[in-house]
Amino acid sequence: MRALLTFVLMPILCNSFGELLLKHRLNALQVGGVPEYLNGLRQVFFVFFDGPLSSYMAYTLSVMLGILFDPIVMLSVGTIFFGTVLWLIAMSKFELSYIYPFLSLNYVIILVGSQLLLGESVSLLRYGSVLLIVIGLVIISRSPYFEK
């Protein structure tokens, strides 16, 4: 049971919280635009190229770098990566047909999280679907499982 919580539930939590955090941060970056310290990069580009294309290139590049080196983005990607490592251990310990369905918990957590944390609107119908997924998971967890 302990291994099931550590290697199956933990990576699912890591993945869904990592994705919620990533989406939250990307929303904020889009609103806030490019970080201040990357404006220097644009100046460097103007030295080598001139014209509208160079400003577009510099803008795209600085947005990309701004996302890649953003500490919150790094944290969320790191969380998702950590979850993936735990998931590999889970796959070595348990049957694929027993643990794989639990990945659908991701849908459930992300749906609830996108309403509570990101403020997206979620219809009542979708909670019906979530109920179906949870019922399915409860049924599968009744199946006997083997741990290596």
Binding site: P101, S104, Y107, S129, V130, L131, L132, I133, I135, G136, L137, V138, I139, I140, S143
Partner: peptide, 10 residues
């Protein structure tokens, strides 16, 4: 049965 519920749900 479980996977049936999950597929219809998702």
């Amino acid at each position: 049965v479980g996977i049936g519920f999950i597929v219809v749900g998702s």
